[in-house]
Simulated assay, not measured.
Amino acid sequence: MTSSNDVLSRIAILADDLTSAGDGAAPFRQAGHDARIFLTPTAEPSRHAVGVSAFDLGSRVLDEDAAIVRIKRAARRNASADVLLKTVDSTLRGHVAAELRSAWAGSRKRAAILAPAFPAEGRVTVAGVQYVRGVPVHESDYGRDPAHPVRCSDLATLFPDAVLSQRDEAAELPELVDNGNLIVYSASEDGDLDVLVAAVPRLDEVLWVGSPGLAAALARRCARASGSAGRLPARARRPLIVVGSTNPASRRQLTELLARGDVQGVTVGVDPTPAVEALRRATAPILAVQTPGERHTPQTAHALARSQAAVVQALTEDLTVDALVITGGETATTVLEPLGATGIDLLDEPEPGVVRGSLTGPLPIPVLIKAGGFGDDALLLRLCHLVRHQPDLGEDA
């Protein structure tokens, strides 16, 4: 619940990829705040903007030095926000340590609190060690991630100067914040994160660093008694499912989807033309385009991603499809850039790790974006049903 001290006008979220930006903003949207995702790192919301501004800084795909510069500049631009949240992947992929320190320096906040747990997805922190469904993250599939393998699960190793804290030590948090500490907070359930957020008297004195679990706890404290509920986008006549993530969860979801008789899909090659022509000839009400599931060299993977983006651009611009369901933050960024989209007006988070909204720009179509590793095997089936059968504008939900 919102306390009398939590009258907020601006919440800023600094994310290392697009799905993290959506995951960070969505809980605040559900808590009654207007929210927009900005797709360019240097985007500047209106000086008088209120609500949530989430910035996809794209830093996960940069080298560490470039990521440090970009994060520090963004933190400096948004240092005056009432809540400043730097997202990190709940499996610790990316430049976690370097980006935290860069954001902290840029924001000049008194203290920084790192709480990467996302209990709803089985990602928990125990005595400073990050686990995925009971396995230390570096021993899980994320330790074998082809693009961003996780090498260390122990946050005390990544942050040797940090103070470790947990639920039964929350009473000490105000003093630790006053002393300007970097605090690593262990959490195994959502209630642990609620205790953390409730224990800090002033949210604006802290750089908050975490995953959707922490974002949701902050949003619960900052919930608005009333707010714009948003309007559902129109039903999609024909959505396009875009799978670029190689995560096994996304590939299982795609297999489940393609087993249906009303879905036609293609695997894109380096030349997008055959895929475009095949999908234009397709008669099914749901279309899908995927990159090959096997690993490739970085150069080939980049070429395939660009080819997939060209397929999406061709099919949206000629109105073959009128909505997008995209898996993977890097895939979403690559796909949306050629469409001229500048952002996403966020509607809601229909499932954990999934955000729904409308593109801002020349093609204001509905879009759903799913983090690669989230969801059960039937998730893409449910998202297709949602985008095709949601109420039209003006109808009751």
Rank of each mutant, 00 (worst) to 15 (best):
M1T: 06
N5E: 09
V7Q: 06
L14D: 12
G22R: 06
L39H: 04
P45Y: 10
G51D: 10
V52G: 13
S53K: 04
L57K: 04
G58S: 01
G58R: 02
E64Y: 02
A66N: 07
A66V: 02
A66K: 07
I71M: 11
K72D: 15
R73C: 15
A74N: 07
R76L: 15
S80P: 14
A81E: 10
V83C: 01
L84K: 06
V88G: 01
L100R: 03
A103Q: 14
A103I: 12
W104H: 12
G106D: 05
R110E: 07
A112W: 07
A112K: 06
A115W: 04
A117R: 00
A120L: 08
R123Q: 00
V135G: 06
E139G: 05
S140A: 13
P146C: 05
H148T: 15
V150K: 00
C152L: 08
C152A: 10
A156N: 13
A156D: 10
A156K: 13
T157W: 04
T157G: 01
F159M: 10
P160M: 12
V163I: 05
V163D: 05
E172M: 08
L173H: 07
N181Y: 10
L182N: 01
I183Y: 09
I183R: 01
Y185S: 05
Y185F: 12
S188P: 07
D192K: 10
L193T: 14
D194I: 03
A198D: 15
V200F: 08
R202E: 14
D204T: 07
L207K: 14
S211M: 02
G213F: 00
A223L: 00
A223G: 01
A223H: 03
R224P: 03
S228I: 12
G230R: 05
R231H: 14
R231G: 13
A234T: 13
R235T: 09
A236N: 01
V242N: 09
R251P: 14
R251D: 15
R252W: 09
Q253H: 09
G265V: 02
T273I: 07
P274K: 10
V276A: 01
A278Q: 08
L279C: 00
T283V: 11
T283L: 04
T297L: 03
P298T: 13
T300S: 03
A301Q: 10
A301T: 06
A305N: 08
R306I: 07
Q308T: 10
A314R: 06
A314F: 09
L319Y: 08
V325Q: 03
G329W: 05
G329H: 08
T333R: 08
T334H: 01
T334R: 00
T334N: 03
L336S: 09
P338W: 09
T342H: 09
L347F: 13
P350H: 05
V355H: 09
R356Y: 11
T360D: 13
G361I: 09
I365Y: 14
G372Y: 14
D376Q: 11
L379Y: 12
L379V: 13
C384I: 05
C384M: 09
C384A: 07
L386V: 11
Q390F: 06
P391G: 02
D392C: 02
